[in-house]
């Protein structure tokens, strides 16, 4: 409580003018590159992420021995993504951590039984970082996987949540809210199945609050899922119109 900045004004607005449950503005586009099998660009407020997917292709080396699909992720953050220049775009601890988290969440969504002994590569590049980097990366990766035509159980989306001093949960945390010292909770979920694929907390929540904060993050996930779904449909109408797919949807 002490030293923590108040994240929610008495008029019920957050630092950037959102209300507690509101997401940032989301823009997304699929099929942004020709070279990879699938790609997507996603903006959530000022956090901007590119994702590219290669595969499924035959796994190389020793990896072929397992029957499962191998999901290979790479997370990197452009040197120009933060206000102070980053020296190492990838390979640092944080990136390694995010890479593992991406693998964990994606493996829950991909129908792995369909791709034995094959490998799927997911490359994520954060162009501009303004909070919830992991969540936006995962959402972009989901779109790229869909663009690549990989079978998923359902959309896997992530959203962050925090708690204001007055104990009101906040959805989709921006960078300023992250650094102001609020606790941060990240949830990656399969919203329809109501399953949580991944959950991370930056600090401890009291048990009384944890449930409401998770529920807030889940509500955020559902909202993002709806936005992504609409975007996918629109994309399909667009690319499929030549083949008369437009009428299908």
């Amino acid at each position: 409580m002490a030293g923590r900045f108040e994240l929610l004004s008495e008029q019920g607005l957050r630092l950037d003018g959102r209300r507690p449950h509101e997401l940032r503005h989301i823009k997304c586009k699929m099929g942004v590159f020709e070279q990879p099998d699938g790609s997507a660009y996603m903006e959530q407020g000022n956090t901007k992420v590119l994702a590219a997917v290669y595969g499924p292709h035959q796994a190389k080396g020793k990896k072929t021995e397992t029957n499962d699909v191998i999901i290979n992720c790479q997370y990197s953050q452009a040197t120009f993504s933060t206000s102070e220049r980053k020296n190492r775009p990838r390979g640092d601890r944080k990136s390694q951590e995010f890479k593992m988290y991406l693998q964990q969440a994606l493996s829950a969504a991909i129908k792995s039984e369909l791709y034995p002994r094959s490998q799927i590569d997911v490359y994520v590049e954060v162009l501009q970082a303004d909070g919830a980097n992991y969540a936006v990366s995962l959402n972009a990766a989901t779109l790229a996987l869909i663009d690549a035509g990989i079978c998923l159980n359902e959309f896997v989306v992530a959203c962050t949540a925090s708690l204001s001093k007055s104990n009101i949960p906040l959805t989709d945390i921006s960078n300023i809210e992250e650094v102001s010292g609020g606790p941060k909770l990240t949830v990656a979920a399969l919203p329809t199945a109501e399953k949580i694929a991944f959950l991370e907390m930056s600090e401890r929540f009291h048990i009384d609050h944890l449930e409401t904060v998770i529920e807030t993050a889940m509500a955020g996930c559902r909202e993002i899922r709806d936005i992504l779904e609409a975007a996918v449909k629109e994309h399909l109408i667009h690319i499929g119109s030549a083949a008369d797919w437009g009428r299908v949807c």
Partner: peptide, 12 residues
Amino acid sequence: NILKIVREHYLR
């Protein structure tokens, strides 16, 4: 160092 900081500002 001089930093440029960009923040979102929503108008309602």
